[in-house]
Design a protein around this nucleic acid. Structure first.
Length: 488
RNA sequence: GCCGCCAUCGUCUAGUCCGGUCUAGGACAUCGGCUUUUCAAGCCGGUAACCCGGGUUCGAAUCCCGGUGGCGGUACCA
């Protein structure tokens, strides 16, 4: 594809609450496209529906874009040459252009009441017709409607869609799409409260902000002919459009709150890494050339092509997300994993742990983590207070090895306690392992029968990190204390 | 209802434009094995898909037609 003009793309969310993961998904493709073409990624807040505003939403949007590393080049916060970037601050533009439309006859004032509209819709639906406005007010002579507006009568401005003909739209990901004009509704462009609707605002702003490519969700595809008609009426060149599929929930419908977490920031709060989320998100709808699916933003930037995005909606697969996140966690240096863990790792108050201890603990559990939040369940039993608490509720059946007998447990534990008591500190997992394995053999015991109860005694869990790692982590005194709790 | 989009393993997808190299490839999940003191991780292997029906062609996942299904839109929401 030959890009002839400067690439300018935009993300245009409505500040109606938490940021949907689909918004971020869309944002990443816009961002990627802008970066690849040395263009600008613009953030524009579409707050023309004052009834749906949720305070704090704009801050959420920034927080989310920040966390996903999709910072805009222009927007309400960073400014830019095409501001303001909040639609509620651009009302004069919309009014001016709506007026122009009416003057040209491409739009018209409509005075129909919501009651009449509802009635009309009801009749049409009953008659199995497509519900749409019947163009009643288009017949009102212009000077008459101007006078009524001037007299203060409530009115909306509608788009005057031709009753015949077709309009062809060329979409970057979908090719040519043809729409028949006679089934289109004369949409409201300006509401009676003087605020624009999406259709007007988006066209005016995309033009005024010199947007070159509109990359947005498929749900907008049906309104493309209206937008194209508006560009035509204004005598403007339309941007290039790319309509991307929707992210689907488990029931294959548009992903929504019903499907669980959809807020972009809850993934951060659940312990997913930003880079893993980025990787997962780009894999929905797009695929690299080779077989390797773990790839950084930089690698994606090299081979991403907007036209390659899939046309079918993708199911949000949490299992794969968790796998990717685990892979990223494993690839982190233990020291930096410790840092990343800080906000999620609940270290009991009163427990004093060194940085070095944390590092060892993290090394023992990193391969088992899918999410950063897993750290608590995976290792916190190492803290004496946590162990004590769990000990009181512990089911001793767990001490019996899968193939072992209950009777052997106590004997093995007693032997182990005695052997451990004879070892001198500092002890290391590697040395302990070497010594203990040979001691077990020398005593005529079996690894499985000796080691399983030991490990369960130390961790109180059927599944846990390696027993020697645990011995090293806990130290001699605490290890012995735990084992002896079961022997005496 | 009407308009539009879409359709390959359970899931994400490669392949479709330029028909043969596809007895359809990869990844996740799942199942089995190896390793082994548990669980992971790692390695090895298995199960598993071209929505259906016609047509064009020597040959179709790929092209054409017709169905079916899913989704989206159909607001003074975006």
């Amino acid at each position: 594809m030959a890009i002839t003009k400067t690439v300018r793309v935009r993300l245009a969310p409505s500040p109606t609450g938490e940021v949907h993961i689909g918004t971020i998904w869309m944002a990443q493709f816009n961002w990627l496209f802008a970066r690849q073409h040395d263009g600008a990624f613009v953030l524009r807040i579409e707050d023309t529906d004052q009834n749906r505003l949720v305070p704090g939403s704009v801050e959420h949007i920034y927080e989310a874009l920040d966390w996903y590393e999709l910072q805009p080049d222009e927007g309400p916060l960073q400014g830019g040459p095409y501001g303001p970037y909040i639609q509620s601050q651009r009302l004069d533009f919309y009014r001016q252009y709506a007026y122009q439309l009416v003057e040209q006859g491409s739009g018209y004032y409509c005075f129909c009441t919501s009651e009449r509209l509802a009635e009309l819709r009801q009749m049409q639906t009953a008659a199995k017709q497509a519900p749409r406005y019947d163009k009643k007010c288009v017949a009102i002579p212009p000077e008459q409607s101007r006078a009524r507006v001037a007299a203060g009568e409530p009115a909306v401005v509608r788009l005057n869609i031709p009753v015949h003909g077709t309009i062809v739209h060329h979409d970057l990901v979908r090719g040519n799409v043809t729409f028949a004009l006679d089934v289109l509704d004369d949409s409201v462009l300006m509401k009676s409260d003087g605020w624009p609707t999406y259709h007007l605002a988006v066209v005016v702003d995309d033009h005024l902000m010199n947007i070159s490519h509109v990359i947005r969700a498929e749900e907008w595809l049906p309104s493309v002919p209206k937008h194209l008609l508006l560009y035509r009426a204004f005598g403007w060149d339309a941007p290039i459009f790319a309509h991307l599929p929707l992210i689907l929930g488990s029931d294959r419908q548009k992903l929504s709150k019903r499907h669980g977490a959809t807020s972009a920031l809850t993934f951060r709060d659940e312990g997913f890494l930003s880079e893993a989320m980025q990787n997962f998100l780009v894999l929905m709808g797009w695929h690299p050339k080779g077989n390797e699916e773990i790839l950084s933003r930089q690698q994606v930037l090299k081979q991403f092509r907007l036209e390659q995005i899939n046309q079918a909606g993708a199911f949000f697969d949490r299992a794969k997300l968790e796998w990717i996140n685990g892979a990223y966690i494993r690839s982190l240096e233990p020291a930096s994993l410790v840092e990343r863990l800080a906000p999620w790792w609940h270290i009991p108050s009163g427990a004093s742990v060194s940085a070095e201890w944390k590092l060892r603990a993290v090394k023992a559990v990193r391969e088992r983590m899918k999410k950063l939040t897993d750290v608590n369940e995976l290792i916190n039993f190492a803290f004496p207070a946590v162990w004590d608490q769990e000990f009181s509720l512990f089911n001793r059946q767990l001490l019996i090895p899968p193939k072992g007998s209950e009777r052997a447990v106590k004997d093995n534990l007693a032997w182990t306690a005695k052997w451990l008591a004879g070892q001198s500190e500092p002890w290391s997992a590697g040395e302990l392992k070497k010594q203990m394995i040979s001691a077990i053999a020398a005593a005529g015991r079996l690894n499985a029968e000796a080691l399983w109860p030991l490990r369960v005694a130390l961790t109180l869990r059927a599944a846990s990190p390696d027993v020697f790692d645990m011995l090293e982590l806990l130290g001699k005194t605490e290890s012995l204390r735990r084992v002896r709790s079961f022997v005496s």
